[in-house]
Amino acid sequence: MVIWDWEFAIKVLPDLFKAMRVTVAATFAGFGLALVIGLILALGRRASFKPLSLLSRGIIEFIRSTPLLIQLFFIFYALPLATGISLSAFQAGALGLGLHYGTYLSEVYRAGIDAIPRGQWEAATALNFSRLHTWTRIILPQAIPPIIPVMGNYLIAMFKETPLLSTITVVEMLQTAKIIGSEWYRYLEPFTIVGALFLLLSYPASVLVRRLELRLNQR
């Protein structure tokens, strides 16, 4: 008995490739949100106004230590009931990913900002830079380049979490594989292909990030 059916595998490949676009789109939409949310949370945490910094810290801790799956259910099913704002499945998914990974990225931003020597802050004050200019011209341009590889790692990690969006009816790769599987009663090929596609995309990406890291360390 031949277990693996090549003919079937080749037949379902185009559908899976098409679904990959949704996966990639969700990854980048989520990551864009995460970059913004992460920065806001990182700044919130540094705020001198105590309640604000405590609140940011609480949000970060809470979101980081609860499962993305439940957060997605909350955003997709409970949020419309609570607020009346109804999001499409894709929007809810991107928001869930963005929030979840935003809390991780806030820690990355924090590490980058903390690594800036005090002298830079003092020099900006001495040169009469406004607070906004200190951040946008002095601190962030120095804080962000060294943390880019770490952010790259989180981008890859987030990419691998996108199959969770299938649970809130986003038709990405895994959901497509499931549909194909239940249609033909063959799960082996579609699921194996999906796993292989993830590996095929994430492994080279992680090698690239590692190279980038080495190059940054050399400087």
Partner: peptide
């Protein structure tokens, strides 16, 4: 590490 946990679970 390179493929997704949910995919591994389903597989």
């Amino acid at each position: 590490r390179g493929s997704s946990l949910l995919v591994q679970l389903f597989w």
